[in-house]
Design a protein around this nucleic acid. Structure first.
Lengths: 345, 345
DNA sequence: TATTATGTTGTAATCGATTGCATATAAACC
DNA sequence: GGTTTATATGCAATCGATTACAACATAATA
C-alpha cells in the first residue's frame, strides 16, 4: 500500500536535498561524515531501497543480460545457463532467458525484444545459420556498445566473441576411437552443416578417416535431427544398406539413443556388431545400464561461465578498440560400453 | 556509435513536441491522422525504438518477472521454466532466472535483488521451509502489488497463490501400486518434511499402508537427500536391516537410482527381490534399459504454464480484493520395470 | 458578431536517481 | 579585518517517455 521510500522522502524528512541524500548514500566524500551517517541511518529506518529502474534509465545500464537458446529444457543448455547465472549474479547482473525452439523468426523477435529492454549484453547459441540476414541481429551488430557473445552454436563473424568447444577434435577423437576398436565402416549421423558445430564434427570425422587410411564414403553420412525418433529412422536406413556400417558416430546423444534402440530391436549387438558414439554427454548416456553410451563431453557449465566472463570483459572495456575473444574449450571423449569391444580399450 | 533516436529527435525533426510524438506513436485520436502518419513514418525512417526503461520508470511496470528455483539444470525445473517462458513471453514479459542451490541466505538475497529491480512478480519454488522468517520475503508479502506465486515447493501462506501437484496422491498411488505387487515391507526414502511436498508424499505413503492393513513401521522411513549418492547410502542401511524391505518408494528419482545401483551390486534383483518407485519422471528413468524406473510424473511444463497464468491473473487484477488461487495438478504414476513383478500388472 | 464547441498541439510535471556547477559557510592566512 | 581556501550543500538539468491541463485555431451556433 504505502509507496516505496525515495531519496526525496529521506531528503524531506531531514531537511536536505535529494542530491545530498544521493551523494550520502553513495558515500561521496564531499558530504560530511555526520550527514552521511544521518542519511544512512534514516535510509535504513525508512526501508529505503534504490530504484534500479531509475538508475538504469539515468546510467544507460540495466544490469540485465539476455540469454537466447533453442530450448532450456535440455541438460546441455540448462547447464550452460546455470554457469552463466552463477558467474554473472555476483557481479550484479540478472539473466533473462529466451527460447527460440530453433525457429528463425522467433529468434529474430527475441533479439529485438531484448535490445528493446536495454539489456547490457546478449549471450546466445544461434538457431539460424544465416543470422547475418536478420534485421534485428544487424542492428545489434552495429550497436557496438552492447556485447554479443556466442556459445556453442556460433557464427564466424568478425568482431564477435564466442565460446565453443573444439568440435573438430570432438569428431576426430570419437572417430579415431572407433577406428581403434577395429571399426572400418563408420557411419556419421550429421546435422545441418550450415551450423559450424555440425560442420566441424563432420570434418573431424573425415580427417580421422583419412589419417587412418579409410576411404570416405559419402553414403555413410546422413543428416539427422537431434532426437530419438530421427535417430531410429536413420539407423533403419543404415541397417538396410547392402553392407551396413560397423559403427556409428552421431552428432547427437538423442539420435544415438534412437539408433541404439533400432539396432537392438533388429537383432544386432552393441558393441559387438555395431559400435555407437554420441555427442554431448547427456545424463541418460551414463545411466543406461546395458549400453551406456560413449559420448563427447562439452563441459557446458564451464562454457557458460566462460561466456559470462567474456561478456564481463567486454562490458568493462571502456577503450575505443573492441576486444574480441574466441575461446575454444577442449572436449573430452568419454568411453563407455556402447563402443568398447575390447576390455583393455 | 550514434545514439538511439528518441521521441525528442523525432519531434525536433518534425517541428513538433515530444508529447505530440508520444501520442502519435500511441495512436492517440487527439492527434490528427496526418500528424500521426507523419510521425509513424518518420519513426520508422529514423529507426526509432521505444526505450522500455523509461516506460518502466514512468509506469512502474518493468514487464519482468523473476523465477527462483533451487537449480536450473534439473529436468524438472528447466521444464517448469520452459513453460513459464512460453506462457509469459507472448504477453510481453521477460523471465529472469535465479538459483538458490537450496541455500536460505542466497534465496533471501535473490528475493531482495529481484524486488529491487522492480520485477512485476515472482514465481518461486522455495528452498527454505521457514520462509516466513525472511526479511526480504516479508517485505515482498506486505507489498501486495507484486504477485507471488509458488510452484511445487510451496508454503501454505494465506493470500499467496500456488501451483502444485497432489503429492499426497502421488505418494498414495506409488505405495498402493507396490502393495498391489504384493510388497508388504515398503520403505520410504523421504526428505525434509518441513517442506510440504515431502510431507505430503510421506502422508500419502502412510495412508496407503493404513488403508491396506499394513502396519506403519517408522524404521522404514529414512530422510534422504535427492541425489544418487545419498540414495546409495540409504539403500545400504535398508539392506543391512535384519529384515530388509521388499520395496522402496523414493521421493526422488535420483535417490531411487542410487538405491537401485546399491541393491543390484549387493546381488539382489529388481523387481523380483525389491521393487523400486521414484518420483519426478526424470528422463533417465525411462532410458534405463534393464530397470526402467517406475515413477510419478509431475507435469512440469503444465505446472510452469499454470503458474504463469495465475501470475497473469493477479497482475491484471485491478480490484481491491486480491485473488488467491491454489491450483493442484494431478500426478500420474508411470509404471515401469523397476516395480513390475507381474506382467499383467 | 459574439459565443460555444471541436479538434489539435503545446506546456510542464512526473517517475527516481545522478552530477556539473554554483553557492554558502567557516576556517585559515596575511 | 579582509581575502583566500576548504568544506558542505543546493540548484537544476538529465535520462526517455507519459499525461493532466492549458491554449490556440477553426468551425458551428445563437
Amino acid at each position: 500500500m504505502k509507496k516505496k521510500t525515495t531519496i526525496y522522502d529521506i531528503a524531506e524528512k531531514l531537511g536536505l536535498t535529494a542530491a545530498t541524500v544521493s551523494r550520502a548514500l553513495n558515500n561521496n566524500t564531499k558530504i560530511s561524515l555526520n550527514t552521511r551517517k544521518l542519511v544512512l541511518d534514516t535510509a535504513l529506518e525508512m526501508n529505503y531501497e534504490q530504484n534500479k529502474l531509475a538508475l538504469a534509465l539515468k546510467s544507460g545500464k540495466s544490469y540485465n543480460v539476455g540469454v537466447i537458446v533453442p530450448r532450456i529444457d535440455s541438460n546441455f543448455f540448462s547447464s550452460v545457463i546455470r554457469g552463466i547465472e552463477e558467474e554473472l549474479y555476483p557481479k550484479g547482473y540478472h539473466v533473462i532467458i529466451c527460447q527460440t525452439h530453433n525457429q528463425e523468426n522467433i529468434e529474430n523477435e527475441k533479439i529485438n525484444s531484448l535490445v528493446n529492454v536495454q539489456v547490457d549484453g546478449i549471450l546466445m547459441s544461434i538457431s539460424n545459420a544465416n543470422l547475418e540476414e536478420n534485421k534485428g541481429f544487424n542492428k545489434l551488430l552495429k550497436n557496438k556498445k552492447t556485447p554479443l557473445v556466442f556459445f556453442d552454436r556460433k557464427k564466424d563473424i568478425k568482431g564477435i566473441s564466442s565460446v565453443t568447444i573444439d568440435d573438430f577434435k570432438g569428431g576426430y577423437d570419437a572417430t579415431k576411437h572407433l577406428l581403434d576398436q577395429g571399426c572400418k565402416r563408420i557411419a556419421h549421423l550429421s546435422n545441418d552443416r550450415n551450423f559450424e558445430i555440425f560442420r566441424n564434427r563432420y570434418l573431424g570425422y573425415k580427417q580421422a578417416l583419412s589419417d587412418n587410411g579409410i576411404e570416405f564414403d559419402e553414403s555413410l553420412v546422413i543428416e539427422t535431427q537431434s532426437n530419438v525418433l530421427d535417430g531410429r529412422r536413420v539407423a533403419r536406413l543404415l541397417l538396410d544398406m547392402e553392407t551396413p556400417p560397423d559403427a556409428i558416430f552421431s552428432s547427437s546423444d538423442f539420435a544415438a539413443l534412437g539408433a541404439i534402440q533400432e539396432i537392438k530391436e533388429s537383432g544386432f549387438n552393441i558393441p559387438e556388431d555395431i559400435c555407437v558414439v554420441g555427442f554431448s554427454n547427456e545424463p541418460f548416456t551414463r545411466f543406461m545400464e546395458l549400453t551406456a553410451i560413449t559420448t563427447v563431453d562439452q563441459f557446458p557449465l564451464e562454457m557458460g561461465r566462460t561466456a559470462a566472463q567474456v561478456f564481463l570483459e567486454e562490458v568493462s572495456n571502456t577503450g575505443d578498440t573492441k576486444i574480441t575473444k574466441n575461446v575454444v574449450l577442449t572436449p573430452q571423449l568419454i568411453i563407455r560400453k556402447s563402443s568398447l569391444k575390447h576390455k583393455e580399450g
